[in-house]
């Protein structure tokens, strides 16, 4: 089902992940979060931006345990743990945050 944001239409796959990563813009993340009944704050954006940088560098969306470790290294131990990340993204930090970031579903998410 295509996602409609600000009068533009974006193609997504059957699970709601953006079809073309290059079409992503921040307003899409807000719209996706809104549809999930959530609102994105600075802490969410920190993770979303981290994921986009990770993808840019490695061409993959990291598995959740890789994400957790990498966040811990970059943003500190108080953020590099499942509890913190699941509170931000209750549907699963890798899956949900990757979706908002416009990335494909993480490799290694079985």
């Amino acid at each position: 089902m295509p996602l409609e944001v600000n009068g533009k239409s974006y193609e997504t796959d059957e699970e709601g992940y953006l079809a073309n990563i290059n079409e992503w813009e921040p307003a899409l993340a807000d719209a996706m979060a809104q549809a999930d009944g959530a609102e994105l704050g600075d802490n969410h954006w920190e993770v979303i931006n981290f994921l986009r940088e990770y993808y840019e560098e490695y061409q993959i969306a990291p598995a959740v345990r890789v994400l957790t470790k990498a966040i811990g290294k970059k943003l500190g131990k108080d953020k590099g743990n499942s509890k913190y990340l699941y509170e931000l993204f209750p549907y699963g930090p890798a899956k949900q945050a990757c979706k908002y970031a416009g990335l494909p579903k993480p490799t290694g998410c079985v």
Binding site: E57, Y58, Q59, I60, P62, A63, V66, K69, A70, G108
Partner: peptide, 14 residues
């Protein structure tokens, strides 16, 4: 095609 050669550099994270 996707340049997946960059992904080999993430293997350490895994």
């Amino acid at each position: 095609m996707k340049n997946f050669s960059k992904t080999y550099t993430a293997l350490g994270d895994y």
